[in-house]
Design a protein around this nucleic acid. Structure first.
Length: 326
DNA sequence: GGTAGACCTGGACGC
DNA sequence: GCGTCCAGGTCTACC
């Protein structure tokens, strides 16, 4: 199998750092528990390619990237960029060290990276499909978006199809999204979202470069995100953490549950949310990482390490009823 | 600025 | 197996 290798940061451990956020369980991602390998298709300028990522069980060991076809040099660079984004290999070591200084609980395990998607568009759509729906619904929507609108990996009919890009989603009829992808009332919003990604900023579209520029102030990024269809305060804060901006907390009903059961807060949902917010405020620019890793540790205490979770049977672990029981 | 109610789907539960 | 209830964040209308 053709491929290439990628040198990660010295502390990088694929199972721990990739299986660190729920999106690792969403199509078209697939984590093989048995092989401890990530597979998924990527969309490159020369067409779709299937990738398989593995790492010897040693922090910092080179990542082995196997590809379903031989890539030209520029395509390999594209794949490298997307994989780097997805695995957060570009997360500044100093940022992780600073986080560990602020919240010493994670230094020993080395946790700090939270995985994401190869593109911002996929992250935004995944966030919108996680709003106002239980986790199995999110799993279903993402699976169907790929099955209905994704492109196949050439010569690999059994492989997952790509996540639809903005161009594909922008020309899909809302009725198709609703009927075949089961996205419900999100149909029109998703199409509008895709159109905003497709339209140049000079013609009223989304300024993606400005959003992804680390020099853009948090407040400006938040303002741009909150204007997007389907994006409210929770989704905006979540997209911000996916952009590497960890100061804001995407608080939802799960946060309230966490605040009550683990942090011992009492009162109305709004009061508990306020208290949860204050609880993580001392972690400043790394608040989200403290919050999220605490939540993740709780899930793992109930279900074992995330790298042992099977994608196709995990949905039911995170229904509201199961979490209440936990 | 704050809030009530609609939006849509799938899981849970009772029969 | 069927019907009903409920969970979930965003958006709009209204005060």
């Amino acid at each position: 199998m053709p491929g290439f290798s990628l040198t990660p940061p010295a502390d990088y451990l694929l199972p721990r750092d990739y299986c660190s956020y729920g999106y690792f369980l969403l199509f078209p991602n697939h984590w093989s528990v048995r092989e401890q390998a990530l597979t998924r298709p990527l969309r490159l300028s020369g067409g779709v390619v299937g990738i398989r990522v593995t790492q010897p069980r040693r922090a910092g060991a080179p990542l082995k990237i196997e590809t379903s076809r031989t890539l030209a040099r520029d395509e390999r660079e594209e794949a490298r960029t997307q994989i780097t984004r997805m695995l957060r290999l570009d997360e500044d070591d100093r940022s992780i060290a600073e986080f560990h200084r602020l919240d010493g609980r994670w230094k020993k395990t080395g946790r700090g990276r939270v995985s994401r998607s190869p593109t911002l568009f996929e992250d935004v759509v995944k966030t919108v499909t996680s709003c106002n729906v239980t986790w199995p619904g999110t799993v279903q929507m993402n699976r169907r978006l790929c099955e209905v609108l994704g492109a196949p990996v050439p010569d690999k009919p059994d492989a997952a199809r790509t996540f639809p890009d903005a161009a594909r989603l922008a020309r899909t009829r809302p009725q198709t999204l609703r009927a075949r992808c089961r996205v419900g009332y999100r149909d029109q919003r998703l199409v509008e979202l895709a159109r905003l990604f497709r339209t140049p900023a000079s013609r009223g579209g989304l300024n993606v470069a400005r959003l992804e520029d680390p020099a853009t102030p948090d407040d400006e990024v938040h303002e741009m995100l909150i204007d997007l269809p389907g994006v409210g305060p929770y989704a905006a804060a979540n997209i911000m953490q996916l952009l590497g901006r960890y100061a804001r907390l995407p608080l939802d009903t799960e946060s309230v549950r966490h605040g009550r059961s683990l942090l011992g807060y009492k009162g109305s949902s709004a009061q508990v949310m306020k208290k949860v917010h204050s609880h993580y405020a001392p972690f400043g620019p790394h608040a989200f990482r403290s919050y999220w890793l605490e939540m993740w540790e709780f899930y793992e205490s109930k279900h074992g390490p995330a790298w042992t979770w099977e994608r196709d049977s995990t949905g039911k672990m995170f229904t509201a009823a199961q979490l209440k029981k936990a």
